[in-house]
């Protein structure tokens, strides 16, 4: 009886958290819209969502690693490596259909992710350090494979450009991809055994071991998924901006982490939802893209970003302290009974 009431209360709070982000999004939208009505035009939304789409699914991959209590700092480099490799392959074989290129990029990303996963799962190296190291390594490989030559607009085939610009069922491809990935990962994380194991493992690694969850496999799985999504994102990235260069997506890992944190993913592991991350990405995307609209000078962008993340984190901390406090009180009551 009692335990259920804790649970329902907790669930309520978690729900409130996402509700909170939603409210913030609405407030931001209203404020920006009042300042500049252009904000509500379909065109503006399309730009914003195209930007947020790639960020969204890479952040979902990032979320899985954070939920296990790890982190993947290499996503930015994987985006660049996959994008550059695919760009070069396209330059050398312009006849290849875009679908093959997308698959290739995804496989490259998967490979990078599996390496991360093996090092973390089998090698027992801390995720932060592993991905810090592979971040440099993959970034360096971008320079090596490109031989210091960018893939530029002229090299990109018509079909490839269409990947980002085309539509499926009236929705832009990027958004479509993000939606599908979000739905699939929601199902995977919430309704499959493996998905629940990821949360269980992140919540309490020792306990998870006792109930027979294989930590090595979980680690390889999440980093492989994160790498795969980043590799897929790399192809779309190149298609969106029409270029691949050595510093493509530099610092992108920070943006994905920020979207997760804003979306309520706990850096301690075990907590986080796909929906929250989507909202977090959306908020992040709106803020990044609407500063120009409300006339904030570009130089403020970084500080504003940092400030928002900080607020989200502090909000989260205060909230979770309160939850912990409440639970402790209830437990005391329970013990007394």
């Amino acid at each position: 009886m009692n335990s259920r009431s804790y649970k329902s209360r907790l669930r309520e709070l978690v729900r409130r958290r996402e509700f909170g982000i939603f409210i913030i999004i609405v407030i931001v939208m209203v404020l920006v819209g009042l300042r500049n009505p252009i904000f509500f035009t379909g065109d503006n939304w399309k730009d914003m969502l195209m930007y947020a789409s790639i960020l969204a699914f890479i952040s979902i991959g990032q979320m899985m690693t954070i939920v296990t209590g790890g982190i993947d700092l290499s996503v930015g480099s994987v985006v660049a490596l996959s994008g550059m490799s695919v760009g070069i392959i396209m330059r050398d074989n312009p006849a290849l259909p875009p679908v093959v290129l997308i698959l290739l990029g995804t496989v490259f990303g998967l490979g990078c992710g599996i390496i991360n996963g093996l090092l973390i799962g089998k090698g027992k190296v801390h995720p932060l350090i592993t991905t810090l190291a592979t971040m440099s390594i993959y970034r360096g490989l971008v320079v090596v494979v490109s031989r210091s030559r960018w893939v530029v607009y002229g090299d990109i085939t018509k079909g490839f450009k269409l990947i980002a610009r085309g539509n499926i069922l009236g929705i832009n491809n990027l958004m479509f991809a993000a939606l599908i990935i979000a739905v699939v990962s929601y199902y995977f994380l919430n309704h499959t055994r493996k998905g629940r194991e990821i949360y269980a493992y992140g919540d309490h690694q020792e306990a998870a071991k006792f109930v027979g969850i294989n930590s090595t496999r979980i680690n390889i799985l999440v980093y492989a998924l994160s790498g795969m999504l980043a590799g897929f994102g790399g192809v779309l990235w190149v298609s969106r901006v029409h270029t691949a260069q050595a510093n493509t997506a530099l610092g992108y890992e920070m943006q994905t982490i920020a979207s997760c944190v804003i979306g309520g993913v706990s850096i301690f592991g075990g907590v986080g939802s796909v929906f929250g991350v989507l909202l977090g990405t959306l908020l992040f995307g709106i803020i990044l893209n609407s500063l120009e609209l409300i006339g904030i000078v570009d130089f403020w962008k970084l500080s504003v970003q940092g400030f928002i993340i900080l607020v989200a984190v502090i909000f989260d901390a205060v909230l979770s302290h309160r939850v912990a406090e409440q639970m402790r009180k209830q437990r005391r009551v329970f013990d007394a009974e």
Binding site: Y51, W150, V152, V241, H242, T243, Q245, N247, T248, D298
Partner: peptide, 8 residues
Amino acid sequence: MTEKSYDK
């Protein structure tokens, strides 16, 4: 940088 210029 192409990406940044594009976004700008």
